[in-house]
Design a binder for these strands. Sequence first.
DNA 1: TTCATCCTGAAACGGTCGTTCCAAGTTCCG
DNA 2: CGGAACTTGGAACGACCGTTTCAGGATGAA
Lengths: 198, 198
Amino acid sequence: MPDIKHFDPDRALERAERLFWRHGAATTSIQAVTAETGLNRSSLYATFGDKRELHLAALRRHVRLRSAPVCAALAADPRGLPAVREFFAGLVDARCEGEYARWGCMLVNAYAGEEAADPEVRAVLDGHHRSLRDAFRAVLETARDQGQLAPGVVPGDGAEVLVLLAYGVNVRSRAGAGAGELHRTVAAALAGLASGSR
Amino acid sequence: MPDIKHFDPDRALERAERLFWRHGAATTSIQAVTAETGLNRSSLYATFGDKRELHLAALRRHVRLRSAPVCAALAADPRGLPAVREFFAGLVDARCEGEYARWGCMLVNAYAGEEAADPEVRAVLDGHHRSLRDAFRAVLETARDQGQLAPGVVPGDGAEVLVLLAYGVNVRSRAGAGAGELHRTVAAALAGLASGSR
DNA sequence: TTCATCCTGAAACGGTCGTTCCAAGTTCCG
DNA sequence: CGGAACTTGGAACGACCGTTTCAGGATGAA
């Protein structure tokens, strides 16, 4: 083993992930990545390959470290509908306040970009879509078994609806929609799922 | 009046609109616009100004000629819920089949792009959001007056939910989601609005 | 017809893009 | 200590970016 890397690859990837997240793949230049990470072009290319591979690695890191844990926690939550409400409350807050306010969701942003034509990008997006949908379905099945669900609500279909709702929240939050407005809208959408609500 | 334009500005703008719609603002070059429209840089700049202004004009044309008429027809539809179902059926078909399949919605794409930080772009997006929401609210009020609405559904809140649902459909359709899947999901979402559904 | 006015075509601007290359430096193994 | 293996810094590549400029052609008014 002759020489060792002088930097932490995952730390650099996390910086790149943030750039791609906030500005998008097309408008994030390699130069911007080198400036943000502190390392130079050679190290970047030697470690991650070209820009497309770097973006893919950033997308996959995002799914692995940010999206997947949330999906797993959601799927394993035994509370039923309250878990769904908590998920959306956290989503709205994360999108409207704090460090990542108005960044939207990195994956939803990728849907709308030119990069969505890339089969490997699409595979990441599809994988995340399935994860989130399956998590919602599990929670809705739990809710149904506990009698929380309004009659007529099918967990599989309801889960797809909730995923689209989450996409909508992510889209709308990027244009500066207020947290209060989104909380209210989400509450109205979820009210239709609960038994005894009407 | 010395000389007259040798081309139809709106025809050129429509070509540019399609490029921005399909590929996004960042990845559509002026060169691509000149190639698509057939006119050269000078005429382009003299007519529309720089790239930002061209993109804004394309966005506004999109709202004026494609989005606004649909919103107006929706708002004026006297049928209530069937109008909502027809809107979404048409949306899903337009996004999944035909000439514009998998292009998504130009406005939703703009939400996710870097251009959403531009105040003028954001004004266009907000205007469209309000138009669509108001149209949905009008239709839901009609539905309520005709007894079609499930008790507990507030037209104002339901309208916001439907807009987010539409955003979700637009996002998901760009990654190749099937029309059948989206039709089914939309149907499940709308079922919760109808009276006697549960 | 003359002329002022506008449009068109094409070349060119500086800047930035993603990517490659290579010399110099650093590290571990024997 | 010698040298192979690998990283690093930095220059350089051609291509493309958005934009400007200008000469020359076309047009309508007087």
